[in-house]
Computed example of a mutant assay.
Amino acid sequence: MRAASSAAFCARLLRRQLVLGLRRPVEIGNPLLFFAMVIALFPLGLGPAPDTLAAFAPGILWIVALLSNLLTSEGVFRGDFEDGSLEQLLLAPQPLYFSVLAYVLAQWLLTGFLLGLLSPLFALMLGLEPAAIPALAGSLLLGTAVLSLVGGIGAALTVGLRRGGMLISLLILPFYMPVLIFGSGAVQAALAGAPAAPYLAILGAMLCMAVALAPLAIAAGLRISADT
């Protein structure tokens, strides 16, 4: 009975976060607009040569996805911290592990998941080979989930600070690098005709580890921030 009530509570919490996010379409549109604008600017800096753009496309797409995730990481818990809802969540009898997982899942669905779905369009803008697009979409869906979980740790530790955006970047950017390396590596492998499955498997293992450990770190960070 208690497990069922905890699952129902987390489902309601996830629905609440999604509804709040959909009521603020600007917060959803900002990462997507940033992604599109930066992708559109790269041809101006690198030149319009299709071969040049296609060669740099995997790294470009992944770096922009990483920066887009940083834009939204700071606000995962900010609103609930400011209105006092976060303190009530910390006092709730439900396990905090699943509650913070619902927050991160909502953030990923509204940002990383959408980026993964729209990535084929942006890839075609850079002239990426169609054969590499499935590897790109798969790596982004897996990788952005890891980025959201790791970003949630930084958001939890800095939620009590007025300007924690730069601090979040300093805290979590080094942990983003393995995801960036293997995510772009999957696309590069697909371009070279090699199997991308090993890279995707490593990203999947990273995601499993992040799902197991990151919510515990996020919960501890929220308790530290609430006590200070």
Rank of each mutant, 00 (worst) to 15 (best):
M177S: 12
A145K: 14
L140D: 11
M209A: 12
A102K: 01
V187S: 00
A102M: 05
T111E: 06
S5V: 10
A4S: 15
D51N: 04
A49R: 15
I39F: 06
T72E: 02
P130D: 02
N69W: 04
T72N: 05
Q88I: 15
Y97T: 03
A49N: 11
P48F: 15
A7Y: 10
A194K: 13
Y176D: 06
A156R: 08
M166K: 12
G183C: 11
A132F: 08
R162E: 10
I28F: 03
G185E: 01
L91Y: 01
I153Q: 09
G29Y: 12
N30T: 08
L66H: 15
S148I: 06
L66Q: 13
F9S: 11
I224G: 09
G193N: 08
P25I: 09
G79S: 14
A132H: 13
L32F: 08
L118W: 06
N30V: 11
G59M: 12
V64K: 02
L117E: 02
A54G: 15
R163L: 14
P174E: 04
V76R: 11
L124R: 14
V19Q: 08
V159K: 03
V64R: 05
R23V: 09
P215E: 05
G75W: 10
L86K: 10
A155P: 02
A36R: 13
L46W: 01
L41K: 08
P43T: 05
L117T: 00
G151N: 02
A155N: 06
L124I: 10
L61W: 01
R24E: 04
R78C: 09
V76E: 11
A201S: 08
L66S: 14
R78K: 13
G84L: 15
A189R: 13
T158E: 04
T52F: 02
F182T: 11
A212Q: 11
A135L: 00
M1L: 14
A219G: 06
G75D: 12
L141Y: 01
G151M: 02
M166D: 14
A54M: 13
A123Q: 10
L70I: 01
N69C: 09
L96F: 04
S184V: 15
I60L: 15
A132C: 09
L161K: 15
G185M: 00
G160E: 02
P198L: 04
P195M: 01
